[in-house]
Design a protein around this nucleic acid. Structure first.
Length: 296
DNA sequence: CGGTTCACCTGATAGC
DNA sequence: TGCTATCAGGTGAACC
């Protein structure tokens, strides 16, 4: 699932439970997710104190006092949940509620810190997620993080930057924006949403947003603004849903969105005055939703 | 090299 | 009820 805004929401939700806490033990219920867990992972993590949480693209970063950082990707179906208090069960108390699919609890951080004992549990039915660990000073050279494009929340992402990346590219905008080397953190949903906001056809070649001299066209500036606003709005929505989620079952990783174009095939386009109907096509094996009337 | 397709894995849902 | 087919928010590897 999770695209940048969801991972950011997970980070914010986990921070109070994890930051400053000591990992008494990391319990791995199996040897691998999509890839094997790193060698000696449990030993490297157990006994360390978490000094902070971070995020890069769709990766959650867990900084340890040893100078190492855990790199966690949630794949399509990964989520974290917090269980507060001792392991002993108290039926009826939501804080001690067990996951309905406990068989997909793959990694359990047993924590001790202010507020007492708790567990942060990684659940992932499809096991497309993965974890790695690296020296914090070498993070940018990590195989998973190396070469990632700029965050859409920062100033590094600009029309001029994307003009450089898009110049001469025949690749459709949809694919170019999904490429994490161009922009970090966008996934299938928010690419559709950003292109809809910018009134751009997903099949359009990336190079058509760049002038012959390599400058960004006006439409590319609009696209950058759309990416920024879509991501900012989604993070805002995630923040507002966070409280409800923790109160419900302690799970973090999924929250309800209302999208403007994604998953709205055959429904009316929400662009004011457009009157078009949302279409679904398949690009590179993945669903693309767009309005043929207002996206050019 | 740029771009596309495949593989990884389970669960939810639609249709028969 | 149960079977099958299809689809799902990602990404590295394999392939033209």
């Amino acid at each position: 699932m999770p695209e940048l805004p969801e991972v950011e929401t997970v980070k914010r939700g986990l921070s109070p439970a994890m930051e400053g806490a000591r990992i008494e033990r990391l319990e791995l219920r199996r040897g691998d997710l999509r890839f094997p867990f790193p060698e000696n992972f449990e030993d490297e993590v157990s006994g360390r104190t978490i000094i902070g949480l971070g995020r890069r693209a769709k990766y959650l970063l867990i900084d340890l006092d040893s100078g190492k950082t855990i790199i966690s990707h949630l794949g399509m179906s990964g989520s974290f949940r917090i269980e507060q208090g001792p392991v002993s069960q108290t039926p009826g108390d939501f804080r001690y509620k067990r996951s309905k699919d406990e068989k997909h609890d793959h990694a359990i951080f047993h924590l001790e810190g202010q507020g007492g004992e708790r567990r942060v549990i990684y659940n992932d039915p499809r096991r497309f997620g993965f974890m790695d660990i690296a020296d914090r000073s070498e993070l940018q050279n990590n195989a998973f993080l190396f070469g990632l494009g700029p965050e859409p929340t920062g100033n590094e992402l600009s029309a001029a930057y994307l003009a450089d990346r898009f110049a001469g590219k025949a690749q459709p905008l949809k694919g170019a924006l999904l490429d994490q080397k161009n922009v970090a953190g966008l996934g299938n949903i928010y690419v559709c949403e950003a292109l809809w906001r910018a009134h751009l056809m997903p099949v359009r070649a990336a190079k058509t947003l760049v002038t012959k001299t390599g400058k960004p066209k006006e439409q590319l500036s609009l696209l950058v603004a759309s990416i920024r606003s879509v991501i900012a709005d989604a993070i805002k929505a995630g923040g507002s849903s966070l409280r409800d989620h923790i109160q419900t079952d302690g799970s973090l990783g999924y929250f309800q969105h209302s999208f403007s174009v994604y998953d709205r095939e055959s429904l009316p386009c929400r662009t004011p005055g457009c009157g078009g109907t949302v279409s679904r096509i398949v690009q590179a094996g993945r669903s693309t939703f767009y309005c043929p009337d207002c996206q050019k």
